[in-house]
Nucleic acid binder design. Structure first.
Length: 777
DNA sequence: AGTGCAACTCTTTTT
DNA sequence: GAGTTGCACT
């Protein structure tokens, strides 16, 4: 690891004295708390950063400041976040402030783990050519380890194993039997142990291992820890409220905070935005941080620069119902804006139409589609919006959809790549050896894997070669074809088949990659195309595309396209696999995503994002919040609601349906308790208000009887408000006078307005209340 | 080995 | 209601 040692040798001494002009400039835009956080040094730092409080600015400015003003070597700065998107944004913004930040490690927790394991594979006791198993692969592997389990049962074990790893629990951890969730199935620990053994035999890792294995390696190896203390002098963690136990232990081991390493640790988070408990996030990490690390300085960022005061006050009304908060009140620096709108709608079709209308009408007035985000609790809810948007030709983009990598044809190609990277990958072997059919049945496959285990250190390809002469005629021909394909595609690597991950993801490797790419002009895309051709998958899917009118070949090509930036070499292959395995949510290939499109996104996925106009849909009990009973889960849902509201900069809309189709049944929905918590004061409710909603404002907490709709008592006030001759102001059209009022065929109250500058328009005021204002003279 | 039909579950949320 | 899984049949 010569490179590693080289990097740590040139940490420049801290400079003293005057700030550079550049630094004065970027520090001058900070508020006092932000400034304090940026220049703080000498003890651990906990930044409690409310939504929209400029947290990313603080982190990136701090990185720039440390490098530019404090003489910290950019290589010795590590910053981790939870999503690739956030990591990339942070890196770019840091570079914009300070070019040398390019050399800092700014990545997700998991991709940091992958980097660490490649570089220190030996210390961690694993093969440096590992690839990462996704959840489906884990389930398959559990079934291989314990064949009597059905897929469903195996999935239960898979989920719990993943959770156990988040909690940093191994099969033999005594704590495993102390936690309720691991008590059944009663043989959980045994299956977990079997799985671990089998997983190690494949030479692969799962997601949990990316955190757990680096931690274990550090824990058992003082020399390695020492190395890390020199390698990383500054460690920052973003979204710290969602870190899990394993991540905390990794951070602790990496920083040596308890060992007096002198590493500077800065964590940033917001306890009100902790929304990943189901995935093992441990909110105690942030609540107890100051207790665990004595001398911790706490800085609170409570100035919100994102949302209008109307939006923030709704957010505060909701979150203040939670107990056990560190406590924090956001100040709306932007001042006041439009009042949020709550639409009660008959059913989910109306919900979809309402959103589409809102977007389309605003677009006609020049509002870009990209202003809008549709938020929902579960992925399933996106379907209705998708079809409606397609129909109305509204461009949209779904964030966080795993669809691309879940496609059969994509998984096939990826399995080929994985097997090439790691000949021990049993799951990948099973997937591709007989596809298209080569008469290699499951019995033959199992016997080959068994032989690999017994005689070839799990190398399945070696096992294939050895078993070849002894197989039945059919299987023999199939396996020999298979081996031929393997040989042909492996020859594409040329002489560069040596294993090695020393340079992974470091700047140095990027340069070498760049050189190699230019020299050979060959990229990984070529490998993928060859695999598709030689394996017969191309022909196979061409045939199926014709019959089924699908676009599978296109998808394979798209995968190939996304591999163009990677060199045709072993390292390029591993980098590419890391990239797709650790970033499944983003469609890697930036295939013609319309830059001006509406965002469809789950509430969870919105963390860290912001939009001018936000619609929170499905505000119904049972949808959001999902379960109403458990108070702890309720608090997490409430935090999720808080996250959703605070994504909105200028306009917030909420929709709630009276009836929703679920499963195949019609469900009569109650409106979400969160709507009641928001109160009725700061929100404009339109549509048929359920009695539960109208009654609640008088006695908070008592949500009233279940009920759908009251007779519409609200239409009268509206009619009274918009009378002929009234002067109004419309956000899009400006000032005008109501020249006529009508009742439509559907019984809706309509007005005709003559605008000073926009001609004559007709409206249904009920649906325009957010844009319409009566002007008092 | 591959096809077709019947029965079942499923809705959290994701690196 | 749909998509998936498992079984039985060819």
């Amino acid at each position: 690891m010569a490179i590693e040692d080289e990097i740590i040798s040139d940490i420049t001494a801290p400079q003293s004295g005057e700030l550079s002009e550049h630094a004065k400039e970027y520090l001058s835009v900070l508020n006092p708390e932000q400034y304090e956080a940026v220049v703080h040094e000498g003890s651990p730092l906990l930044i409690l950063a409310g939504a929209g409080s400029g947290k990313t600015r603080v982190i990136t400015t701090k990185i720039a400041y440390l490098i530019g003003e404090k003489g910290v070597n950019p290589h010795s700065i590590l910053a981790v976040t939870f999503t690739k998107k956030a990591a990339n944004e942070m890196h770019e913004r840091a570079i914009a402030l300070e070019a040398r930040a390019e050399f800092s490690q700014i990545k997700t927790f998991h991709s940091f783990g992958a980097w660490f394991l490649r570089v220190y594979a030996e210390d961690a006791g694993i093969d440096p050519n590992f690839t990462v198993y996704d959840d489906d692969d884990v389930v398959s592997l559990i079934q291989k380890a314990e064949p009597k389990l059905t897929k469903k049962e195996a999935a239960v074990y898979a989920r719990k194993i993943s959770l156990a790893k988040d909690y940093c629990l191994l099969p033999d951890s005594p704590e495993l039997s102390m936690r309720e969730e691991f008590l059944n199935p009663t043989d959980f620990a045994e299956v977990y142990a079997l799985y671990e053994k089998r997983l190690r035999a494949t030479g692969n890792v799962d997601f949990g291992d990316l955190i757990l294995l680096p931690y274990l390696a550090l824990k058992e190896n003082a020399a390695l820890r020492e190395k890390m203390y020199h390698r990383f002098r500054v460690i920052m963690v973003d979204e710290y409220q969602d870190s899990n136990v394993a991540q905390f232990k990794l951070l602790e081991a990496l920083s040596g905070l308890s060992e007096g390493s002198g590493t500077y640790v800065c964590v940033v988070g917001d306890d009100d935005q902790s929304i990943y408990k189901f995935r093992g996030a441990e909110i105690q990490n942030i609540l107890n941080f100051p207790k665990i690390f004595s001398g911790t300085k706490i800085v609170r960022l409570e100035s919100n620069y994102r949302s209008t005061s109307e939006i923030l006050s709704l957010a505060d009304n909701v979150i203040s119902n939670n107990s056990g908060r560190l406590g924090k009140t956001l100040r709306a620096e932007r001042g006041s804006g439009k009042i949020p709108v709550l639409a009660f709608l008959p059913n989910q079709d109306d919900e979809v139409h309402f959103c589409a209308d809102l977007i389309q009408k605003s677009h006609e007035m020049g509002v870009p589609y990209a202003d809008w985000a549709i938020l929902y609790r579960t992925n399933a809810q996106s379907l209705g919006f998708e079809s409606e948007f397609v129909r109305k030709k509204i461009p949209y983009q779904i964030v966080g959809s795993l669809k691309f990598y879940e496609r059969e044809e994509v998984k096939d190609i990826v399995a080929w790549l994985e097997l090439l990277a790691n000949h021990k990958n049993e799951i990948a072997f099973h997937r591709i050896v007989n596809k298209p059919a080569r008469s290699v049945g499951s019995k033959t496959q199992d016997s080959i894997v068994e032989t690999a285990r017994l005689s070839f250190q799990n190398d399945i390809i070696a096992s294939c070669r050895e078993r070849l002469p002894k197989l039945s005629a059919k299987a023999k021909s199939g396996i020999s074809q298979f081996l031929e394909i393997i040989d042909e595609v492996e020859s594409l690597f040329g002489e560069d088949t040596t294993a090695g991950g020393e340079l992974a993801n470091d700047v140095v490797s990027e340069h070498t990659d760049e050189l190699k790419k230019r020299e050979s002009k060959q990229t990984l895309a070529k490998l993928i195309e060859e695999i598709a051709k030689k394996s017969g998958l191309l022909a196979y899917y061409e045939e199926r595309d014709k019959e089924e009118h699908t676009f599978r070949v296109e998808n394979m090509q798209e995968l190939a396209n996304s591999a163009v930036p990677y060199p045709l070499a072993r390292q390029g292959l591993l980098d590419f696999l890391d990239n797709i395995q650790l970033d499944r949510t983003l469609s890697t290939s930036e295939e013609e995503i319309n830059p001006d499109s509406v965002t469809l996104i789950t509430l969870h996925n919105t963390k860290g994002l912001e939009f001018n106009r936000v619609v929170m849909t499905g505000m119904e009990e049972g949808v959001f919040p999902r379960n109403g009973d458990d108070e702890e889960e309720m608090e997490e849902e409430r935090r999720l609601c808080y996250v959703g509201i605070t994504r909105a900069k200028n306009e917030l809309y909420l929709t709630s349906c009276a009836v929703r189709r679920m499963y195949g049944h019609i469900e009569y929905m109650k409106c979400s308790p969160f709507l009641l918590e928001m109160g009725t004061e700061g929100i404009k409710a339109i549509g048929h208000k359920p009695s539960r909603y109208t009654n609640s404002s008088f006695h908070g907490g008592d949500y009233g009887e279940r009920g759908l709709s009251h007779p519409d008592v609200e239409s009268d006030p509206i009619k009274r408000k918009y009378t002929r001759g009234t002067k109004i102001f419309h956000d899009d059209y400006g000032y005008g006078i109501i020249v006529n009022t009508t009742i439509t065929d559907e019984g809706e109250f309509g007005i005709t307005v003559s605008f000073e500058n926009s001609g004559i328009k007709r409206f249904l005021p009920k649906y325009q209340e957010s844009q319409l204002m009566v002007v008092k003279e």
